[in-house]
Each structure stands twice: as structure tokens, then as C-alpha cells.
Design a protein around this nucleic acid. Structure first.
Lengths: 334, 334
DNA sequence: CGCCACCGTGTAATCGATTACGTAGAGCTC
DNA sequence: GAGCTCTACGTAATCGATTACACGGTGGCG
């Protein structure tokens, strides 16, 4: 491939001039046209590696995501990619697969590649490498999941209002024995969602005892299914279950179906994350929708602030309740 | 961040020696330990940008995917990422969003970044830039979708056997008026799947007239829904519909549900792509499953062959029919 | 007309690694 | 012990860009 020297020779100027023309610096002269012509003829494209070495800017952002096959994260990644792209950055995606070790490994790789900034939707609480990122001076923004002890802005959804609406919704429908399926113990997100749900219910005089709090072994389909099974085996079956992640909700639905229980007649079901499929399940699921794309966009902008060495605050965007038919609303025709 | 010069000074050796120690070249001496100690103490990590400039290898692969929110492509991307990672490569993902212009733009960016190889699941037939990739000498492997006129190996699924099984399945169940929803006109995948389906049906004496071939305006939910609507408005309603993409199938299901038609009693439905959700729809969908993860893995290996300048052939992996309950099999308990 | 500012451009240093080549010294052979 | 090979390592070129600095020429101003 042609390099800047080739262009310089062909245009009869020095490499410096070529560089200046291409970066729109000083020269406005006739040279400009000769250079551009040479660029055209040779099909020259600047080598980004060399440029990155010299300028210490790669023009790439890193995104560590906990599970690429989880539709919530996919949508998040898609939004991040869109926004990064429109701002002239490309995106290197690292898929942590919910494994902290793999996450650390990937962060290391991205750091070695000298990405300009890093977005992390952290798996677990693997803060060892994150601390190193902060130490290395690479701009960092946490996404969706906060990590205690890491000094970086965090962009995520605030479920308080949605939880409050949900509790009111449930109270109005006469559901008195709620249950919740949360992420594995130690996940901040899980703790927080549990606390919010419990608090919101309490405002309506509804109790959420520990026995109806199920911590899934993983954030997957099987985890959700197993916990749902345990909840259904309780002496007093819950009349409502909140799954705090879409894959767990899917597992929960399967367990209900396997037992021949109907939603919402026998058990009401609500999920976090409004992934497209939930509008097409039977019945369509009532969900707490996070402003996924907006989270992605804001996270990119926050990261750019940090990249330009401006201070940036954490951002909380409100989640909202999307009422469909899985708690007792009239069913659709069918 | 510490660089190789800092390490050299600290260890009292030259930069060449440091480089050699770290790359496991010649020296095995006591120097080795001094260097490693210095690396440890300084927390040195080699700058991949500089290394890439010198060696002309970035250790990154590019993946252009047509739609990051389509679960089929997500699984494909996940598999590619896994495999690339395990072979020491990282992955830069470009999301074409089914728009050829954006795809071209992204390919250009990846080329400028000097990725070592490129995997493309092409949106449309945007072959202009692809020809340039081939011309630039960057190893290229096509994934899932072949592009006529582009001289590069293609890794994709062969639906012939599955289509044959499907036709037999349909014939056995007495379905005589099949229909198909295909990708927008001009998409090779669409043409091919149509041809295979038609051929397989013909072997059982079943006809697939053009009026029951619906080309969707896009590969999305709404496209599928619209085509399904048109098919249902036919004077003679089809008794079976094959959607050649999972999102289109979703739209088709919605249209059926909106019209109060039941699957499979009123219309049988089959989809391409065995995305996890299809096992959880009502009824669970019979699908033609592509060996998605395997496709991703094989594509990466094929690309590595090309990167190492060895010849590599196209690969066809068999898709298979996964029979569930959307064509008339006994329903599950419920 | 002479001086100075400034514009356009070239020369060369630089980013941080890898690597061809050269060299000093150790060890071997005869 | 001369000559040879081999090992361990340093010097410096190199990858392809950006950019500080220098310099020659032009035009404005006094």
C-alpha cells in the first residue's frame, strides 16, 4: 500500500507538506491540489498505526461487556457503537462472558492496544484490573454496573420510580405475595434492585420476606429457571415474581410453563429489561425498561469528556414501567 | 506509562536486549532475570501500537456484521470473538446496520487501522469496497453471505439437507400450500433459500408459486409482518409459511397473533435460525438451525490460513431441521 | 530602498518497538 | 596460543506518520 513518502515523491513535495495538506494545517497553495491528486492516483490512505504512535491517540474506544448474547447488552453495545462511530471513534469489543478473569485479560489487551478510553459493564466485582486502568490514566467510564472503590463516572439506570410504579400496580391488582429473582450474591445491581423493590412494596404495606428472595447462581436462563422452581416449591407460593434480568425471566417462564402454571392467572411475572422479544411472548410481559440506547449514548459522551480531561459526573437515567399483560391486565384477543 | 527504554535503563541493558528477552529470542542469561525484574517493578507493558508499526501485524481481526441486534449475528459474533481471542487476536466489530454505505465506511476504517484480517457478513451486495479489500491484500473471508465477484473464501451453512427434511415433514403433515418470506430482492441468501425450498417441495409434488413468495422490504420484524399480512390476504391462504430469518419470523408471528390465527392449527410456521427464544415461544418453533458457533469458529480458522498466506477453500456446514411444534406436531402440555 | 513579518515549505527529530549487523569475549580445536 | 565458532549483547536503522525548527522568498511599511 502506498505510504506518505510515495505521495510526497509523486507530488514533488516533502512528506511534511503532504501531512499538512491532509490534516488541513497551513498550506492552502497550489501544492494542495498536486498533493490531493497524488493521493487520488495512488489510492493513499494514512496508516493509522503510525499516526497513533506519533500522536498517542488511536481513535478507538474499548467496550467490555459482560455477555454479548444477552439482548440487553447487545442493544447497549449497538447504541455505543453507533454513537462512537458517529463521533469518529471505532469500537473494540471485549466479551467478558460473565467471567472476571476473562474480563481482566481483555482489559489488559485493550490497554496494550492503547485505546483512547474504556467503557466497562463489569462482570462481578473484578476491580483489580479496573484499579489498574484508573492508575494507568486511561479514561474509564462504568456502564450499567457500578463497582465500589473505583473512581470513575458510572452511567446507569435509576429504577426507583419504576419500582414504585410497579409496587402500586401490583397492589392495585391485589398481589400480596411478591418474590424476586436477583443476580448472584455480591452483585451490586442485584442488591440494589432488591432494596428498591422491597422499599417500594413496603410503601404499600406489602412484605418481601427473605424466603421469597432467590439469588440465581448465574445471570442465565438456567439460573432463572432454578430459582423459579425453588420459589414455586415454597409452602406458600408467591403470586408474583420479578426477574431482574431478561435471561433469568426467560428461564422463569419456562419453569412456569413446564409446571402448567399460567401467567398471569396463577403467577404474575415481571422482568427487568425491555428486550424486543418480551412484546411477543405469551402473554406480553410487563417489564421495567431501562433507557438502553440512551445509556449507551450518554456513556460515550461521558467518556469523551474524560478523554478530553474534563471532569464528568455519574449519570442516572430513569427506568420506567411498561405495563403489558403479565400481571393481570386484560389479555389480548387470542 | 513505562516504555522499553525505561526498562532497559533500570536493568542496565540495551533496549534490544529487553526486546529479545520479552520475545523469547536469544538470551537465556542472567540478564534475563534482571530484565524481568525491571519489567515487574515498572509494571511495563509493551506498546502494541509501536510493535504493530514495526512488525506490520496488529493482532486484531475485523468483523463486519450486518445487524448487531439480530440474535443470529450476535451468536455468530460471540463465537468469532471467542475463537479469535483464544488464538491471541482481538476483535474490532463494525456494525453495518444493514446499510451498504455504512458497511463500506467501516471497512475503510478497519483497513486504515491495519487489521490483520477481515471477516465480513455483508449487508446487501456492497461489493465495491470489498473488491478494494481484496486489492489491498488484506486477508478476507466472507461469512454467512457470499458476494458474487469477490474472490475470497466464504464460510456458510448449506441448507439443502434441512430443506429436504422440512419438505418431507410438511408433506407428511399434509401441508399443501407453502409460502416463503425471503430477504429483499437481490440478496443472494434469499434467492438461494427460495431455490432450495422450491426444489425440496417439488420432490414431494408440492408447488410453490410466485404469488406465495414474499420479498420483505427489510430483514426486520416489520418486514416480516408486512409480508405475512400480504400472504394471509391471498384468496387462498397458505397453510404453511417459512420465514428465512428470525426477526422476520417474529414479525410474522405477531401478524398471525393479531389476526387471531393459531399456530400450527391455522397456519404452520417455520423459521431459519435457531435463536434461543424460539424454544420459548408459543408454540415452540420448528426451525432450520444453522451451525452458528461452528460457522464462527471455522471462519476464524479460515481467515488465519489466509493471514499466513496459505490457500483456503470455502466451507459449507450443514444446517439441520429442528422439529418442534409449529407445524402440527402434538402440542406440549398447556 | 531596507527591514521585518510572515507564509509556505523542507529537514530532521520523534513516537516505541523490532531486528540486521557488528563486536567483544568465552570456549574449543589443533 | 592462533584461529575459529558461538554466545550475549550493543548500535543503529527502520516502520509511517506528525511536528518543532529553520530558511528562503514576498509584501508591507517607514
Amino acid at each position: 500500500m502506498a505510504n506518505i513518502k510515495d505521495v510526497a515523491e509523486r507530488a514533488g513535495v516533502s512528506v511534511a507538506t503532504v501531512s499538512r495538506v491532509l490534516n488541513g494545517h497551513s498550506p492552502v497553495a497550489a501544492t494542495r491540489e498536486r498533493v490531493l491528486a497524488a493521493v487520488q492516483e495512488l489510492g493513499y490512505r494514512p496508516n493509522n498505526v503510525a499516526r497513533a504512535l506519533r500522536t498517542a491517540r488511536t481513535g478507538a474506544l474499548g467496550l467490555i461487556i459482560s455477555d454479548l448474547t444477552n439482548p440487553f447488552f447487545t442493544e447497549l453495545a449497538d447504541a455505543v457503537e453507533d454513537e462512537a462511530r458517529s463521533l469518529g471513534y471505532s469500537l473494540v469489543i471485549g466479551n467478558a462472558g460473565e467471567r472476571p478473569a476473562q474480563q481482566d485479560d481483555y482489559i489488559r489487551t485493550l490497554l496494550d492496544r492503547r485505546i483512547d478510553g474504556l467503557l466497562v459493564s463489569s462482570a462481578g466485582t473484578g476491580s483489580a484490573m479496573l484499579a489498574e486502568v484508573v492508575g494507568s490514566g486511561t479514561p474509564l467510564v462504568l456502564l450499567d454496573r457500578s463497582v465500589p472503590g473505583i473512581d470513575a463516572p458510572c452511567v446507569r439506570a435509576d429504577g426507583r420510580a419504576a419500582m414504585s410504579d410497579l409496587a402500586a400496580h401490583l397492589a392495585a391488582l391485589g398481589r400480596r405475595r411478591p418474590a424476586i429473582i436477583v443476580a448472584p450474591a455480591g452483585t451490586p445491581t442485584g442488591e440494589e434492585r432488591l432494596g428498591l423493590f422491597r422499599g417500594a412494596l413496603a410503601a404499600h404495606g406489602i412484605d418481601l420476606p427473605d424466603e421469597r428472595v432467590g439469588a440465581a447462581p448465574d445471570l442465565q436462563h438456567t439460573g432463572g429457571r432454578r430459582v423459579m422452581s425453588a420459589l414455586l416449591d415454597l409452602p406458600q407460593r408467591p403470586d408474583m415474581v420479578l426477574a431482574t434480568d431478561n435471561l433469568m425471566a426467560l428461564g422463569a417462564m419456562d419453569e412456569l410453563k413446564a409446571r402448567g402454571l399460567r401467567v398471569p392467572d396463577d403467577v404474575a411475572l415481571v422482568s427487568y429489561d425491555d428486550v424486543p422479544w418480551f412484546a411477543h411472548t405469551d402473554p406480553p410481559l410487563t417489564v421495567i425498561a431501562q433507557p438502553t440506547r440512551e445509556l449507551g449514548r450518554v456513556a460515550v459522551h461521558t467518556l469523551l469528556e474524560r478523554i478530553e480531561r474534563r471532569p464528568a459526573d455519574s449519570v442516572l437515567l430513569p427506568a420506567r414501567l411498561v405495563t403489558r399483560h403479565s400481571c393481570g391486565e386484560p389479555r389480548t384477543a387470542r
